[in-house]
Design a protein around this nucleic acid. Sequence first.
DNA 1: AGGCTTACCTAGAGGTCCTAGGCAAATTAT
DNA 2: ATAATTTGCCTAGGACCTCTAGGTAAGCCT
Lengths: 187, 187
Amino acid sequence: MARAGLTADRLTQAAADLADEVGFENVTVSALARHFGVKDASLYSHIRNAQDLRVRLAVLALAELADQVAESIAGRAGKDALVAFASAYRRYARERPGRYAAMQIALDPDTAADSALKHAEMTRAVLRGYELWEPELTDAARLLHSTLHGFVSLERSGAFHSHPRGVEASWLRALDALDSVLRAWPA
Amino acid sequence: MARAGLTADRLTQAAADLADEVGFENVTVSALARHFGVKDASLYSHIRNAQDLRVRLAVLALAELADQVAESIAGRAGKDALVAFASAYRRYARERPGRYAAMQIALDPDTAADSALKHAEMTRAVLRGYELWEPELTDAARLLHSTLHGFVSLERSGAFHSHPRGVEASWLRALDALDSVLRAWPA
DNA sequence: AGGCTTACCTAGAGGTCCTAGGCAAATTAT
DNA sequence: ATAATTTGCCTAGGACCTCTAGGTAAGCCT
């Protein structure tokens, strides 16, 4: 019988696509096996268990997002860079909802190290335009990350739908607010 | 045979405690039935299905948080109120991690209406000290909510642990930043 | 061609979700 | 107080998911 040619990477990629289609919580080993036309048990040669699959998916998403953000902020500085950063982040969450959800699982520091480093570097690149230094730089990076993640995840969960005010307008205002608070930070 | 005296409310309460102990994602109908010493099937007289249980848990958590926040901000105004609001929010996420996680599931507007209204009222109460009016009031409320939720959920997922800078210091700085941006908002 | 590695298989145990149908306990009506 | 009704909890069982053990055969290397 012909082999399907599975590898951990192909499984992770397919799992990511599946997550975007049916939701991260519905990514199961069984569903993934069905997608490749093989039996569940066959996947366990490539992944340790279901949690391992989820972690690989999260790492994939973190790396992808880092790439897209890096591309967005390249050649920009100051508020331009901030807006590019934020927009790339939000766009990823929109276009890849399953991958974005995967990113939210808690990863042990070792597993997340590579991605965490890249994300930290990019955040610092954006903040370079605001002339901040440690330890305030870290405080500002955490605030930036918090605001973006908070806004995007509340938007996705529908928390903003209860009010007619357009979400887009609030988003632009939030970016304005972030920009002005970063410029005034040295206080 | 003596009955266990189950009701939807008792199940939801127990599910909330279970969530705080073992994590929201590990709250199962089976585990809950075990806790009461009954069979799984018995719970389906009180809850429609597993998702219904999760929704009830989310609504319970939203109401509890609203109560605690209301108590915290009572009699305070301006930055005092802001800090009280934020601290109550963060404390709840810390002390009731399972309930906090439950709150994040997407609820249909009807189900969330009561809690959403109360939360909206309180947010507006805090912002009253900053003299904001619609539509900026909504923008500011969304930013406030985003920042708090973002910070708290990133803190919980361990995203801040990769850096030695104390999280507490960053938290205080974030509150300062929020306060100053709200004061300067009318721009 | 023979040997080795490994991709995928079957079989099966154990867990969760949920429905259908039944009995007995609690409640209400007489 | 007994009868009628409601309902809380039961058993049985199907569908799906996770994961292990052990086997067969496909593809690579010599």
